[in-house]
């Protein structure tokens, strides 16, 4: 994580990868009633960890920081669902079967790629070119006709907007 914050992309990738496994276990136990939502919440938490990585203090235990974010996102999800799904209580008896099951990524119900398409161009294009197609900042700037500063801001704001979009679409679903 600390290497990742220092700009080492490979270290950061490895960190996020192992974090996703950890989060899946952490959330699966706590979200036993909504097993279908686990992968969505893993993604939402990963995005939050990325968007908020400047709030991590190198002197602080990493797990405390991660778990606080995961718990916040979990409570936020349950709060959003509270109005709608409290009356449904599916599969209460057979839950253990699911809890103990596989540890690899299942499919998320919510497609982040679709949400990404809803972002305005100035945020969507930098994310698509830089983060999905792997272009550099300079190349992205050339392709989109934006300045390099605007490209960087677009990626940053776009990922934050994506997190907001997750929350608002979830509320209205």
């Amino acid at each position: 994580m600390v290497d990742g914050l220092g700009g080492n992309d490979a270290a950061y990738h490895a960190f996020l990868k192992s974090l996703s496994v950890h989060l899946r276990g952490f959330l699966r136990v706590r979200l036993a009633r909504l097993p279908d939502d686990v992968e969505d919440l893993v993604q939402e938490t990963l995005l939050a960890v990325h968007n908020q990585r400047h709030t991590y203090d190198p002197g602080q235990p990493l797990t405390a920081w991660i778990h606080a974010i995961a718990r916040y996102k979990l409570v936020d999800l349950l709060r959003r669902r509270a109005g709608r799904e409290v009356l449904n209580d599916p599969l209460d008896e057979e839950l253990d079967v699911f809890v103990a099951s596989e540890n690899e990524a299942s499919d998320a119900r919510r497609d982040l790629a679709k949400l990404l398409e809803q972002l305005p161009d100035r945020q969507r294009l930098p994310i698509v070119h830089m983060k999905l197609e792997g272009l550099s900042v300079a190349e992205t700037a050339r392709v989109t006709g934006m300045s390099e500063a605007a490209v960087k801001v677009g990626v940053h704001r776009g990922l934050k907007a994506l997190a907001e979009l997750i929350r608002s679409t979830d509320e209205n679903r």
Binding site: Y12, L16, Q43, L46, L47, D107, L112, K131, G134, K152
Partner: peptide, 15 residues
């Protein structure tokens, strides 16, 4: 988008 794709997206050029 699969979780692994999201991770690759977040980690590319994270800075």
């Amino acid at each position: 988008m699969k979780t692994d794709d999201l991770i690759s997206m977040l980690a590319s050029d994270a800075g």
